[in-house]
Every structure is written in structure tokens, then in C-alpha cells.
Amino acid sequence: MSRADTAPSAASAGKPEASVAAGPVAAGPAGPAAAARAPGSPLRELLRPLGLFRSELVTTFRRWRTLALLLVLMAVPVLVGIAVKIETSDGGSVGGGEGDGPAFIAQVTNNGLFLVFTSLAVTLPFFLPMTVGMIAGDSIAGEAAGGTLRYLLVAPAGRTRLLLAKYATTVVFCVAATLAVALSALAVGALLFPVGEVTLLSGTPVSFGEGLLRTLLIALAVAASLLGLAALGLFVSTMTNSGVTAMAATVGLLITVQIVDTIPQLHAVHPYLFPHYWLSFGDLLRDPVYWDPLLKNLGLQALYVAVFGSAAWARLTNKDITA
């Protein structure tokens, strides 16, 4: 690669200090702190590049748009919970029979914990990844559109470091979005339905405690399912200077891939589509856990992260910043 790369490394710590001390302004009134670049402890020096990540996190999660996305996600379990409650208030069962409606929905009336699984199953095909696509798509392109990208780069944030901070923040958002659904569902489920011992899909009863633990694992599996899409969105984001375009393109890709995944004639490509194993999280509710699809999902996500992460890096580090 042809550009100065600014990936964090311990070797960066010493050099700028030395040259500044030699500069003419070290003692000048321009020094809002002559100590601005005074070396701290070695640990501080190592952690300093994390400042950008922290700033990125704060900036993203203080944004009204991010909070609105999380609120929308939190509203889904409320709607599902109320719908189930109303439909079953006369003693009937959901959907009037077996196999109708989203996965797990029939068990919700017996155990509020199943509202978490139902809500994740409802949001995972579209809502949840859509929010991730928006955050990932906007990450670089949004900065380019606002012109702030050029100022971050002359700060100098470093192209690699910026990309890492952006991806790490998107990953945190994946977790936050999943937890928003799960925690909201847990609260609504506990409020509207009885909770207690959980009967797994394989018929084995486990304690409520173990049920919660498995729920946490499921939330993590769902969050991990979104990592591939996050990398794809990041790559799209480096391709354009318009945040809206990048968001729309990423969400458009998501929809296309979801459709392709349902066309039987294209079954040859299905195992390589990032959403193909998304619903494998249900296998964590079996005893013993059926690991195969779960691991396949993780492997596929890792592949997408590697491929599109590298592509995003290659693109951003060679891109002319003209916006």
C-alpha cells in the first residue's frame, strides 16, 4: 500500500514529542499546553490510540438517530408481547395451531422468556440487520459527506486506525442492538407472562437460571451473526461520499441477499450467503446443543469480515479524499 499508515503501534509514542520540542513554538503562546504531548506512563502511551475509538463510541451513541434506531428495536418485543397477550386472552393459542407465526411464539404464553427468542427471530431477518446496515453504511461515507473525514485524517487519525475505530464501534452497535431487543423482550415477557423453568426444544426442562444463561448466549450468537453484514456495510461506506447512498446500498444488498436465500433454484450459493445460518441460534435451546450450524455461521461471518474488511482497508488507504 502506498500511503502512510497510522495503525497503532508502540513505536509511535516517542517520535513526535522529540520533534516538537525542537520546534520554535514549544514555549510560544500557541501552546494551550506545552505539556500537550508530554509522554505519560508507557501504559497510557499504549492506550492513547484508543481515544479515537472512545470518541467514536460517544459520538455514535449520543446521536439522536442511533437512539431512535434502538428505540424502534425495543418497540418490537412490546408489540409482539401485546399481540400475543390479546390473542390468547380468551384462552386460545397463538395462530390457532402448530407451525404458524414466528418461531417459539407458541411457547410465549407458558414462559415469558420465549418472548426473547420470538423477538430475535422476528427482528433478525430484517429490522436488526437494517439498523446495522445503516450504522455501518454511514460510518465512513457519512464523515466524507460532512467533510469531517478530511479533518479527522489531518488530525491525523490515520486511515487504518479510523477504519478500525469505525468497525469496532459498529460491532458495539451490533451487540447494543441485539441487547435492546433481548432486554426489552425480557422485561415485557416477565411483565405479561409467567416465567420459570424452561422446557428446551428437545423437551428437557432446565432451571430459569440456565434458561437466562442460554438466552445470553443466544443474544451473543445473534450479535455475531451481524458481523459479516457490518463489514460489508463498512466496505460499501468506503466506496461513496454520500452517507445516504451507502446506507441505502447496504440495506438494498441485505434485502437482495435475503431474497436470493429463499430461491430454491439458487441453493448452490446459499451456504455462502451471510444470512443463511442466522436462525441457527435456536439450536442453543437444544440439549445437547447442536453446534454444527452455529459454528458454520461464525465461520461464514469471519470469512465476510476478512474479505470485506480487507477490501474496505484497501479502498480507504488508497482513496483520494476530495470531499
Binding site: 509511535s12 481515544g51 491525523p156
Partner: peptide, 9 residues
């Protein structure tokens, strides 16, 4: 912007 500069304390 200050946080983006890795040399800034």
C-alpha cells in the same frame, strides 16, 4: 478532533 490525534494527551 483532538481525540483523533494520537499524540494529544
Amino acid at each position: 478532533y483532538d481525540a483523533a490525534d494520537p499524540t494529544a494527551d
